[in-house]
Amino acid sequence: MQETKPTVLVLTALALEYTAVRAHIEGREDRTHPGNGTIVEVGHLPGTPWQVAAAELGEGAKNTAALTASLIGWLRPEAVLFVGVAGGLKEDIALGDVVVGTKVYGVQTGKQTPEGLLNRPETWHGSHALLSAARAAVRDLPDVRAHFKPIATADLVLADAGSEIARHVRERYNDAAAFEMEGAGAAHAAHVEGRQVLVVRGISDRADAHKASADASGSQQRAAVQAAAVAVALLHKYRPRDGRPTDSEEGPQGRYGGDHIDFRGAVFHGPVTGKQTGDR
């Protein structure tokens, strides 16, 4: 019985983010989702047991959530990483630093009343095992300054530090260190599907009026490269789960594997209730 390689799904929004990730993957081959046509490149990460499936999804949390869920159902990865760039929200975090999301906030949820916006926050925590692997990995990356902090997500580009949404984030999500557009979508889909998930973002601008000039200086590319370096390094530390089912053990009906005994005494393979492993 041949065992399939454990898979990690690495997602990006932008082409430059994808290029930074792609540079680390060897033996790449295109695969096309049979339903929605999304193209992923599947290859291996040298020095690790991981098969990596990488995809560039485009911008926006809703788009990301839908496509992430679809790709998880198709590829059945053990973990999902969203890797890319973000705007920095803290003065002590420099351009080119990397923020590893201890949690991801969806910041546009609430109820608008005459008294103001009443928050109804949505939060997804980064998976403990991936965070632990990232903490161990960055110790061996002297050229990377990494911060383990919350990340705020909204379906907009923040280029005005004095805007209403910027004030909202500072007041209501004061511990957030980075602002971006897709992390909440990826985190939500991964949690629903019971997968480990982590958002890794390089800081490319200050989420203010100087964003365009910062991007033009090459800060986006450097931030993307640094974020990809952290993602790859953590996968050298993160290990596949013991007892991982193979495709043949799962069968066409079973995403998570496991044996069930039916009433006729025969064994069939299907999903085992309670064996999803995502942090909640």
Rank of each mutant, 00 (worst) to 15 (best):
D175E: 13
Q196L: 15
L198G: 06
V230S: 00
R222K: 15
Q196R: 15
G194F: 03
R222T: 07
A231T: 03
G202P: 00
Q196V: 11
R206I: 02
D208F: 08
L234T: 11
A229R: 07
A231R: 00
A207K: 04
P240L: 04
V225L: 04
V230C: 00
A212Q: 14
Q221F: 07
D208N: 14
V192M: 10
V200I: 15
S213W: 08
R206N: 10
G183M: 03
A212W: 12
A227T: 06
A184H: 07
Q221G: 07
N174A: 15
E182I: 08
V200H: 02
R195P: 12
L235F: 06
Q226P: 00
E180I: 00
G194I: 10
Q220C: 10
V225W: 00
A184P: 00
A216H: 10
A176L: 01
V230T: 02
M181T: 12
A223I: 01
M181I: 10
Q196G: 09
A187L: 12
Q226V: 02
L198E: 10
A189L: 06
V199Q: 06
E180D: 08
A212V: 14
L235K: 06
A216L: 10
H210V: 02
R206A: 13
R222G: 04
R195A: 08
D175F: 13
Q221S: 12
S217C: 08
S204F: 05
A186F: 03
S217K: 09
L235M: 09
E171C: 04
V200E: 09
I203F: 13
D205T: 06
A223P: 03
E180A: 01
A228H: 01
A177D: 02
G202V: 10
S204A: 14
A209M: 07
E171N: 13
F179K: 09
A227K: 12
K237H: 13
H236V: 07
A214Y: 15
Y173T: 00
G183W: 05
Q196F: 13
A178I: 01
D215Q: 12
V200L: 05
G185K: 07
Q196A: 15
Q196T: 12
V232Y: 00
G185S: 03
Y238H: 15
Y173M: 01
A227Q: 02
R172V: 06
H210T: 13
Y173S: 01
G194S: 07
E180C: 01
F179H: 08
I203T: 03
A224S: 10
G194T: 11
A187K: 05
S204C: 08
Y173Q: 02
N174R: 15
V197P: 12
S213F: 09
A229V: 01
G218R: 09
R222H: 12
L198T: 03
S204P: 00
A186H: 04
